[in-house]
Simulated assay, not measured.
Amino acid sequence: MGASVADELQTSAASAGKAPRTARGERTLRKILDAARDEFGDRGFADSSIVGITQRAGVALGTFYTYFDSKEALFQALVRDMSAQVRDHVAPVLKESADMIDGEARALESFLCFAREHRDVYRIIDEAEFVDPRAYREHYETTANRIAGRLAGGRKSGEVDGGYSDEELEILAWALMGANVFLGLRFAVWSSTDPKRVADAMNRLLRSGLAT
């Protein structure tokens, strides 16, 4: 499954030499990130403030600078955190899947549930394109790479047509990710359609297009 969300947070903070050293510090960092998600999600990056974030988190202003140098640094860490949360939310259902294609449908269903509970993820990730283009690109590249890896595993096991090249699997991975993003927007953020119905429809499409 890779690093945990806690590990991701520590890595982000450690890049500035400010990784939490205690369990209490990890909890405080978590509170700041959760408050930032609410603040940026409600107000957008430009209209959000460090004071507003610390007030939501219930921590002193000085505590903020124990972990982050700026609002921009916090936003970058938040984008990575939300990406890690999506990954960790999906990982358990992948382990329970009957096969690779079933796993992709389960992953979509899990993502739709996450997006419905965390609608602000769309606003935050979209803003990252302009606030922190590197984090924005990293989010999508790492997500697509995980999907491509699963497709490669399916090709190796014979579930995916062996005629697909590595380049073609990368293309398919980006196509699947794009479909998932817009399915989440339409059926989780804009409305609350049963995630399983959406995932089942996608499962039929994948089996007709990918299976050998």
Rank of each mutant, 00 (worst) to 15 (best):
R21C: 09
R21L: 14
R21N: 12
T22K: 07
T22V: 07
R24N: 11
G25N: 01
E26P: 00
E26T: 13
R27G: 09
R27Q: 14
R27W: 08
L29P: 04
L29A: 06
L29I: 06
K31S: 13
L33K: 10
D34S: 14
D34F: 08
A35D: 04
A35K: 02
A35L: 03
A36E: 00
R37D: 11
R37T: 11
D38P: 00
D38S: 15
E39C: 10
E39T: 07
E39V: 02
F40V: 04
G41I: 02
G41S: 05
G41M: 04
D42C: 09
D42F: 01
R43S: 13
R43A: 13
A46M: 10
A46C: 00
D47F: 05
S48Q: 07
S48P: 07
S49D: 10
S49M: 12
I50P: 03
I50G: 00
I50Y: 04
V51E: 15
G52L: 00
G52K: 02
I53C: 07
I53G: 08
I53W: 06
I53S: 03
Q55A: 12
Q55R: 14
R56W: 04
R56S: 06
R56Y: 08
G58T: 08
G58Y: 07
V59K: 09
V59Q: 08
A60R: 13
A60Q: 12
A60D: 15
L61R: 14
L61S: 12
L61Y: 11
T63L: 01
Y65T: 08
Y65L: 04
T66Q: 14
T66L: 12
Y67R: 04
F68C: 07
F68I: 02
F68L: 01
F68A: 06
D69C: 07
D69N: 13
K71D: 07
K71G: 05
K71N: 05
K71E: 02
K71M: 01
A73G: 09
A73M: 07
A73F: 03
L74Y: 00
F75N: 05
F75S: 07
Q76H: 15
Q76A: 15
A77Q: 02
L78Y: 11
V79Y: 01
V79T: 09
V79R: 04
R80C: 05
D81N: 15
M82Y: 12
M82C: 12
M82E: 13
M82G: 10
M82F: 10
S83C: 11
S83G: 15
A84D: 02
